[in-house]
Design a protein around this nucleic acid. Structure first.
Length: 888
RNA sequence: GGGCGCGUAGCUCAGCGGGAGAGCACUGCCUUCACACGGCAGGGGUCACUGGUUCAAUCCCAGUCGCGCCCA
């Protein structure tokens, strides 16, 4: 016997262990089946489960479980990402906290060892948290971006792209994070709004005493690296100065005045200082005019030896103060305007980044993007919702060279070696590089490997095929690449999706997936992004502790409407926990009433109207859930199940079944028991992808231990019979009438304040024979649900009755003693007014000649029918009102 | 400045050319033998605004206002 309330903790671990031990998460058991493959967006190995993961993985699990039940050979490939900067940061902090020597003192090799130690010890916490959520990944295939195979793939890709000229080393401006002393990619830079100043500085013009060019800047310290001033070629104010020079204040350098379109005559004075080594725009201008690139910063953003001695060693912000003070003293600082502007910050280091001139490795993303753009344009990969393809195009069509080298230690070391003269040898191994070098120099030479590692996303980009064994030609790769769906948040379309597409197209000559399902961000109940600093983080683990994994999963699924962010509050989860309890109790009720599965049960042979009706509703629900999942409308799938289970099966069907269960008709009773069990069983299947634990538990109760073992829910087949097979139009019509009968009587009782416990009589007037038959057939259940203890068919209603209209019939409830005739009159008048409103609307429509001429016949006919119905209703109500008036 | 999106019941949101929906919240009644994590009944909306297309617009188009997010 099931407990009275559902206790998730008692069952979740048990079922998960059974699934994992039983090998149900592994593909390969169905060699003839179509494969279905998802690769997990690998969480950071340092990470722990947050709401975004919970949503992302719930949706993937829903798809995988649904497909598994649909007979596919499912592989959900799990793993983690080494997360270069984040992990290095975590371990460095930990070492510091434990009083160890720092990374640099320790040395590269020892530090990396420590990172691996840390990974072994506490890495992958998140994977156990995903198990808790119910994720049906094939854990036996777990991969890590730094493991041997994936590292091999990375080297292979690097060497190949280099050989094809698609990876090159170049001296360019990059985004430099002075906190970590590494280059980062454009995408890792966040623009942050901040208060700042725009300072105006006078630069004296050489050979023209008293003539100055005034320039403006938010970063005055960069003037130490200025190598020119630009004005617009058509700016008449400055035409005579082009080709002359300024003398750079504080430095004394002679810098040219050049003409370039970049200078906007409308902005400020129209003259712009040029710092080509520390500003992206200036860099371009500098290239056009061959301006000197003067780097004035050290790797930790202090002033270096290229600046006058007094500023050397100053931090960039100290230098700013010093420069401003000195300019002020010389009378060259002529203005300061307070402004709001956006300042670039490194997303990990938390300090402003500097454009910095260094040698780095770049991927020719523009070239690789061509095929990746075509893949989407030509429909081989589709975004769901489709709008995201615009975001993808936007990024891909304006793509910049991708800086892939990082001055970190934790990551894939770049497979490039340098000869004594700086000649580069890119190779899979050091031996290979040595061979190449020997061929180049004609003798063995000492080589040194590039110190840098690759951007983490470089290895992530290979994930859809590197995890399947590439560059080896494995069977799994052949069977499961391309994968089917990528499920991800929109925030990493650029970081990840775009790059997987490029690498997949290039190396596999086939897109890594045919569909990219983009889900929303999970926000707090006020729509704020969850963040630790705001303190509004809802921890999915807490929610699972409190309400169970299924409740959380169901909530996220029900809220996962395409294209809108999810505002989550604990109340929502509680609500869906209540739904789980409802299911639990429905099953409990069935159990108590001996609803057992009958192996010979044939839904198409059911005789009872009630049973034929619920089977039809089940069929419709099956179709709705199937269609929703096929089109990634997760919220509709959850909604359809919720509506059916609670408001159809529990609210009506089980209530209808009660009198049968306690009644005399043994055949009807047996059929209803079997039907209830059958419908419950099918409902468990339909719900299993979203709520795997509770459905698995109830499955065992319904099937028995042995039965569940022989036919575990996780691989039970998805119900095939839908509306077409199961709906019986006559049963629908009949039960619809019964439902309306009961609802109408209940409504009048409630409005007329008839005590809930009191039994009433109902007099049926003008009722057609068909309906009389229905009433007779369902008298017991109608009586029970509407609290009626007698039906009569008089020609006149008793005086002092409450009256209601049901189709052609008038139902009168004699309430001689208790009825308030005034209230009843008002109630009927209100009903009439409502009906007349409808009639007016429809009459207006039907009076319109254009409507009659142009609207489809079916629409016109429908309106005519509705008008007739409303008019009949009004007439009946009017008669009823007249009777009340006479009684009064 | 460029791009994407959103304004529908008190709140959160579905719907998106032909009768305004759900969940939660709210009101009244009910401890009825599955469930008070429950049942029954009910109140509540010029579908942001202004034009246009159409026989018909919450839905399509244009504009206005308000609010997000992304990229410069």
């Amino acid at each position: 016997m099931l407990d009275k309330t559902y206790s998730p903790r008692a069952i979740e671990d048990k079922h998960y262990r059974q699934w994992e031990d039983g090998g149900y998460f592994k593909p390969g058991g169905r060699p003839d089946a179509t494969p279905f493959t998802i690769v997990i967006p690998p969480p950071n190995v340092t990470g722990s489960l947050h709401m975004g993961h919970a949503l992302n993985n719930t949706l993937q699990d829903v798809l995988c479980r649904y497909k598994r039940m649909g007979g596919y050979d499912v592989l959900w490939q799990p793993g983690t990402d080494h997360a270069g900067i984040a992990t290095q940061m975590v371990v460095e902090r930990k070492l510091a906290a434990e009083g160890n020597e720092g990374r640099r003192d320790m040395g590269r090799e020892k530090f990396i060892e420590r990172v691996w130690d840390w990974k072994a010890e506490s890495g992958g916490v998140i994977l156990n948290q995903l198990r808790r959520l119910g994720a049906s990944c094939d854990w036996s295939r777990e991969r890590f971006t730094m493991d041997e195979g994936l590292s091999d793939a990375v080297r292979h890709v690097f060497v190949t792209l280099h050989g094809q000229g698609l990876i090159y080393r170049d001296q360019r401006l990059v985004n430099w994070d002075p906190a970590f002393e590494t280059a980062i990619s454009d995408l890792e830079v966040q623009q942050v709004e901040a208060d700042g100043s725009m300072w105006s500085i006078k630069y004296p013009v050489e050979g023209a005493e008293g003539t100055f060019l005034t320039v403006a800047t938010t970063r005055p310290e960069t003037m130490l690296g200025d190598s020119g001033v630009a004005v617009h070629p058509e700016d008449e104010r400055y035409a005579h100065l082009i080709g002359k020079h300024c003398i750079l204040p504080l430095v004394g350098r002679r810098i040219p005045i050049v003409a370039d379109d970049y200078a906007d005559p409308e902005q400020g004075t129209g003259a712009v200082k040029m710092t080509p080594a520390h500003d992206f725009n200036d860099f371009e201008v500098g290239r056009r005019h061959d301006l000197e690139m003067i780097n004035i910063l050290t790797v930790d953003a202090r002033i270096n030896d290229n600046a006058p001695e007094k500023y050397r060693g100053l931090d960039r912000f100290e230098a700013r103060k010093a420069v401003l003070a000195d300019l002020e003293a010389e009378g060259l600082l002529v203005g300061e305007e307070k402004i709001r502007h956006s300042v670039p910050y490194g997303d990990r280091g938390g300090v402003p980044i500097e454009p910095y001139l260094t040698k780095q490795w770049f991927v020719d993303a523009k070239e690789l993007a061509k095929a990746a753009i075509a893949s989407v344009e030509q429909g081989r990969t589709k975004f769901v919702p489709g709008n995201w393809s615009k975001t993808y195009y936007e990024w891909m069509r304006n793509i910049q060279p991708w800086c892939v080298s990082r001055q970190l230690w934790w990551g894939h070391r770049i497979p490039a070696w340098y000869g004594p003269d700086g000649e580069i040898f890119v190779a899979m191994t050091e031996d290979e590089a040595r061979t190449k070098a020997e061929a180049h120099y004609g003798k063995p030479v000492a080589l040194s490997q590039d110190e840098d590692v690759l951007d983490t996303w470089f290895s992530s980009a290979l994930w859809p095929f590197s995890t399947l064994g590439w560059p080896e030609k494995t069977d799994v790769l052949a069977r499961h690449y391309p994968t089917d769906v990528l499920v991800t948040g929109f925030d990493i379309i650029f970081f990840w999706v775009a790059r997987m597409m490029m690498m997949g197209d290039h190396f596999m000559e086939e897109e890594p997936f045919h569909t990219v399902y983009v889900h929303a961000l999970v926000r707090d109940e006020k729509g704020q992004k969850m963040s630790k600093s705001k303190g509004n983080v809802i921890d999915p683990l807490d929610l699972m502790d409190k309400f169970g994994a299924d409740s959380l999963r169901f909530t996220l699924t029900a809220l996962a409407a395409a294209g809108r962010d999810i505002k989550l509050s604990e109340d929502r989860v509680e609500g869906y926990r209540n739904f789980m309890t409802k299911l639990w109790n429905a099953a409990r009720f069935c159990e108590m009433n001996e609803c057992r599965l009958d192996p010979t049960y044939d839904p198409k042979a059911a005789g009872q109207t009630l049973n034929r009706w619920i089977l039809g509703e089940l069929g419709r629900t099956r179709d709705a859930v199937t269609a929703a999942l096929e089109s990634y409308r997760f919220n509709d799938a959850a909604g359809a199940v919720y509506q059916f289970l609670w408001h159809t099966f529990c609210d009506w069907y089980l209530e209808f079944a009660k009198p049968l269960f306690s009644g005399e008709d043994a055949a009807a009773q047996a059929e209803t028991r079997a039907t209830a069990a059958f419908v419950l069983e099918r409902t468990l299947r339909l719900m299993h992808p979203v709520a795997p634990f509770i459905t698995a538990e109830l499955w065992v109760h319904l099937k028995g231990e042995a039965g569940a073992e022989a036919d575990p829910l996780i691989r039970a087949h998805w119900p095939e019979d839908g509306a077409e097979a199961l709906v019986d139009a006559d049963a629908d019509k009949e039960m619809d009438w019964v439902v309306r009968f009961i609802s109408a009587v209940r409504s009048v009782r409630s409005e007329m304040n008839v005590p809930a416990g009191a039994q009433v009589q109902v007099h049926c007037l003008d009722m057609r024979d068909e309906a009389k038959g229905w009433l007779t057939r369902h008298e017991a259940l109608i009586g029970r649900l509407a609290r009626i203890d007698g039906f009569e068919f008089p020609t006149e209603p008793a005086k002092g009755s409450a009256q209601l209209i049901l189709d052609e019939a008038t139902l009168a409830i004699p309430l001689a003693e208790v009825i308030d005739l005034g209230a009843e009159r008002k109630r009927l008048e209100k009903e009439i007014a409502k009906t007349e409103g409808e009639i007016a609307k429809i009459e207006k429509k039907l009076a319109n000649q254009s409507f009659l001429a142009k609207a489809p016949d079916a629409v016109v006919a429908e309106n005519r029918d509705r008008l007739a119905e409303e008019q009949a209703q009004r007439a009946k109500l009017a008669e009823a009102l007249e009777r009340v008036r006479q009684a009064g």
